[in-house]
Protein backbone atom coordinates (compact mmCIF):
# COMPACT_ATOMS: atom_id res chain seq x y z
CA UNK A 1 0.00 0.00 0.00
CA UNK A 2 2.76 2.35 0.90
CA UNK A 3 4.37 1.85 -2.47
CA UNK A 4 1.11 2.68 -4.22
CA UNK A 5 0.57 5.70 -2.04
CA UNK A 6 4.09 6.90 -2.67
CA UNK A 7 3.67 6.41 -6.37
CA UNK A 8 0.36 8.25 -6.36
CA UNK A 9 1.94 11.04 -4.39
CA UNK A 10 4.78 11.18 -6.88
CA UNK A 11 2.34 12.05 -9.65
CA UNK A 12 1.44 8.67 -11.10
CA UNK A 13 -2.20 7.95 -11.71
CA UNK A 14 -4.16 4.72 -11.64
CA UNK A 15 -4.11 4.75 -15.41
CA UNK A 16 -0.33 4.45 -15.33
CA UNK A 17 -0.54 1.29 -13.26
CA UNK A 18 -3.14 -0.08 -15.65
CA UNK A 19 -0.82 0.67 -18.54
CA UNK A 20 1.94 -1.14 -16.71
CA UNK A 21 -0.38 -4.10 -16.19
CA UNK A 22 -1.23 -4.08 -19.90
CA UNK A 23 2.49 -4.13 -20.66
CA UNK A 24 2.83 -7.14 -18.36
CA UNK A 25 0.06 -8.94 -20.20
CA UNK A 26 1.79 -8.15 -23.47
CA UNK A 27 4.98 -9.73 -22.15
CA UNK A 28 2.91 -12.80 -21.27
CA UNK A 29 1.59 -12.79 -24.82
CA UNK A 30 5.14 -12.75 -26.13
CA UNK A 31 5.84 -15.79 -23.98
CA UNK A 32 2.78 -17.53 -25.33
CA UNK A 33 3.97 -16.70 -28.83
CA UNK A 34 6.71 -19.29 -28.36
CA UNK A 35 4.09 -22.03 -28.21
CA UNK A 36 2.25 -20.62 -31.21
CA UNK A 37 5.39 -20.59 -33.33
CA UNK A 38 7.23 -23.64 -32.07
CA UNK A 39 4.29 -25.79 -31.02
CA UNK A 40 5.05 -29.30 -32.20
CA UNK A 41 1.45 -30.06 -33.08
CA UNK A 42 -1.31 -27.93 -34.53
CA UNK A 43 -3.36 -28.40 -31.37
CA UNK A 44 -0.67 -26.54 -29.47
CA UNK A 45 -0.94 -23.67 -31.91
CA UNK A 46 -4.73 -23.58 -31.73
CA UNK A 47 -4.60 -23.41 -27.96
CA UNK A 48 -1.87 -20.81 -28.10
CA UNK A 49 -3.80 -18.56 -30.46
CA UNK A 50 -6.88 -18.95 -28.29
CA UNK A 51 -4.92 -17.92 -25.22
CA UNK A 52 -3.47 -15.02 -27.18
CA UNK A 53 -6.96 -13.92 -28.13
CA UNK A 54 -8.17 -13.98 -24.56
CA UNK A 55 -5.01 -12.18 -23.53
CA UNK A 56 -5.70 -9.51 -26.13
CA UNK A 57 -9.23 -9.04 -24.82
CA UNK A 58 -7.75 -8.40 -21.38
CA UNK A 59 -5.15 -6.00 -22.80
CA UNK A 60 -7.79 -4.07 -24.72
CA UNK A 61 -10.05 -3.83 -21.68
CA UNK A 62 -7.17 -2.59 -19.53
CA UNK A 63 -6.22 -0.08 -22.22
CA UNK A 64 -9.80 1.13 -22.35
CA UNK A 65 -9.74 1.72 -18.61
CA UNK A 66 -6.25 3.21 -18.59
CA UNK A 67 -6.95 5.67 -21.38
CA UNK A 68 -10.43 6.36 -19.90
CA UNK A 69 -12.10 5.76 -23.24
CA UNK A 70 -15.10 3.48 -22.59
CA UNK A 71 -15.86 3.09 -26.29
CA UNK A 72 -12.60 1.21 -26.71
CA UNK A 73 -14.33 -1.68 -25.00
CA UNK A 74 -16.14 -2.28 -28.30
CA UNK A 75 -12.92 -3.64 -29.75
CA UNK A 76 -12.45 -5.99 -26.81
CA UNK A 77 -16.03 -7.18 -27.27
CA UNK A 78 -15.46 -7.88 -30.96
CA UNK A 79 -12.43 -9.96 -30.13
CA UNK A 80 -14.26 -11.78 -27.35
CA UNK A 81 -17.02 -12.72 -29.77
CA UNK A 82 -14.88 -13.52 -32.80
CA UNK A 83 -11.85 -15.16 -31.18
CA UNK A 84 -14.02 -18.23 -30.82
CA UNK A 85 -14.52 -18.30 -34.59
CA UNK A 86 -10.78 -18.33 -35.22
CA UNK A 87 -10.31 -21.21 -32.78
CA UNK A 88 -13.06 -23.41 -34.21
CA UNK A 89 -11.98 -22.66 -37.77
CA UNK A 90 -8.42 -23.77 -37.15
CA UNK A 91 -9.38 -26.77 -35.04
CA UNK A 92 -11.92 -28.00 -37.57
CA UNK A 93 -9.34 -27.47 -40.29
CA UNK A 94 -6.82 -29.64 -38.47
CA UNK A 95 -9.29 -32.54 -38.48
CA UNK A 96 -8.64 -34.32 -41.76
CA UNK A 97 -7.20 -31.24 -43.45
CA UNK A 98 -10.45 -29.34 -43.66
CA UNK A 99 -12.34 -32.27 -45.09
CA UNK A 100 -15.04 -31.71 -42.49
CA UNK A 101 -15.31 -27.98 -42.98
Amino acid sequence: MSVVDAALAAGYTVGDFLLLAAAGFTVLAIGMLYRAVKGPTMQDRVLAVNVLGTNTVVILAILSAALSEPTFLDIALVYALLNFLMAIAISKFTVERGGVL
Binding site: T71, F72, D74, A89
Partner: peptide, 22 residues
Protein backbone atom coordinates in the same frame (compact mmCIF):
# COMPACT_ATOMS: atom_id res chain seq x y z
CA UNK B 1 -18.94 5.34 -31.36
CA UNK B 2 -16.15 3.55 -33.20
CA UNK B 3 -17.41 1.43 -36.02
CA UNK B 4 -19.56 1.78 -39.05
CA UNK B 5 -20.89 -0.14 -41.97
CA UNK B 6 -17.66 -1.84 -42.93
CA UNK B 7 -16.88 -3.25 -39.50
CA UNK B 8 -20.48 -4.19 -38.74
CA UNK B 9 -20.88 -5.89 -42.10
CA UNK B 10 -17.72 -7.89 -41.51
CA UNK B 11 -18.96 -9.01 -38.10
CA UNK B 12 -22.32 -10.04 -39.53
CA UNK B 13 -20.57 -12.03 -42.24
CA UNK B 14 -18.40 -13.65 -39.55
CA UNK B 15 -21.60 -14.78 -37.85
CA UNK B 16 -22.51 -16.64 -41.02
CA UNK B 17 -19.03 -18.19 -41.07
CA UNK B 18 -19.61 -19.34 -37.50
CA UNK B 19 -22.89 -20.97 -38.44
CA UNK B 20 -21.23 -22.61 -41.41
CA UNK B 21 -18.48 -24.09 -39.29
CA UNK B 22 -20.93 -25.43 -36.74
Amino acid sequence: SPGGGFQGGAIMAAVVFMIAFA
